[in-house]
Structures are given as C-alpha cells and as structure tokens.
Amino acid sequence: MMNETANNKTIIARKCKIVGEISANDDLLVYGEVKGNVNCVNDMVVGGSVEGDVEARELRVHGKAENNGKAGAIYGQVAVANCIVNGKIEGDCHIEGDMIVGSTADLIGEINAGSIEIQKGAALKGSLNINNQG
C-alpha cells in the first residue's frame, strides 16, 4: 500500500497560501506561503516563505540559485535534526545534528547545533552555540 520507502510529498505550490497550522507525516515542500506553525515528521523543503515555527527532521531552505531567483525564508523558530540553509532564517535555530550554512544564507538569531559548516559569503547575526558532544 502506501508504506513504501519513498515518502509521499505534500506540496504547497508557488501561488498557494495557507493561513494556519500544518501537521505532516509526509515530506513537505513549501514553494508558496505558510502563515502558521509547521510540524513535519519527515523532510521539509522551503522555497517559499514560512511565518511560524518549524519542526522537521531534515530541513532545506533554498537560496535564489536553487529556486528560480526567489530565496526561501523562515520567520520563526526552527527545531530540526539536520539543516541545510541557502536562504533566510529569522529566528532561533535548534539543530540536533549537522547544520550547513551555504554561501547565500542569511541568518538572524541564535544558533544551537551539533556541528556547523559555514561557507564563505554567508551572513550571520546572532550567537553560535556549537556542541558536538552529541
């Protein structure tokens, strides 16, 4: 039935706007606009904008280059296992595992991460707390 390893994907398309909470046990791709908290058990991709707190397993915030000239943005707290950011996050980030901050990333807020990689060109404002004890 539906329990194949390939996860189903909930897709919020470019011109779609959701005002309210989302709770997803599928992969979640946001290319549109979400105003509200998002709780995603699986992987999440943000190419649009999310105004609200985000919980996910693996989070990817797209930069302009990956996303037809429009960077993904999150305005709110982020709590995820692993994270790759090329877009914008305004809010505190709690990353259990690895965080990769790409060259086009723009981060404002406190960052707590297990480990971090910051590429040349990234903009960061806030404190870093990197603790790779596990």
């Binding site: 189903n8 909930t10 309210g20 909470e21 997803a24 046990n25 599928d26 979640l28």
Partner: peptide
C-alpha cells in the same frame, strides 16, 4: 498523512 488547520488560498 498531512493535516492542515487553517485556510488555503491557491
């Protein structure tokens, strides 16, 4: 397996 609590404009 996704639930949305809120309005959708699309």
């Amino acid at each position: 397996k996704t639930t949305v609590y809120g309005n959708i404009e699309c």
